[in-house]
């Protein structure tokens, strides 16, 4: 995406519009069952389906738990760091701990068709739209 601030008033107007949208849109929804902000997610559209990605470096596959119910997606797990004993630390920027995040998706998901992939610390979830949620074209007799 290219963002240029050629006209300051236009930029201001765009911010105003974005603010308005965030107030009136109910998606991704603030009503989470567990309030966590980690991990950050990106949501993409692929045809009629959704793809959700998240960067979770250092989280092992077996420490990750993903569940989906209708349009609610929950990503939880833990990230552990173990460097062994007798070390002197020079610099510490990574953090370890548990996470639990739930959010609502804008459409109903066919939970049987969900595919999850964890590669190079990036989680990708392929979420197919439920058949009954899809738009149907009606033939006129």
């Amino acid at each position: 995406m290219v963002t240029r601030f050629s006209d300051p008033f236009e930029a201001l107007l765009n911010i105003q519009h974005a603010l308005d949208r965030s107030r009136f849109s109910d998606w991704p929804g603030r009503s989470t069952s567990s309030h966590g902000s980690y991990p950050l997610v990106n949501v993409f559209q692929l045809g009629e389906d959704l793809v959700v990605t998240a960067e979770i470096p250092g989280v092992r596959k077996e420490d990750l738990d993903i569940s989906i119910q209708r349009n609610q997606l929950r990503i939880s797990g833990k990230k552990s760091i173990d460097y062994g004993e007798n070390i002197s630390i020079h610099r510490q920027e990574r953090s370890a701990g548990t996470f639990d995040r739930t959010f609502n998706l804008p459409l109903e998901i066919e939970s049987d068709g969900v595919k999850a992939e964890l590669q190079d610390g990036v989680l990708s979830l392929f979420l197919p739209r439920a058949e009954k949620d899809k738009a149907r074209s009606i033939r006129i007799n």
Partner: peptide, 22 residues
């Protein structure tokens, strides 16, 4: 990248988080 650096008896160890890099 977020980095941890520590030292043990044999080596200096640098740990970096670079998600998405092959």
């Amino acid at each position: 990248p977020y980095t941890d650096i520590f030292e043990n008896e044999e080596a200096l160890v640098v740990v970096m988080e670079i998600p998405g890099v092959d």
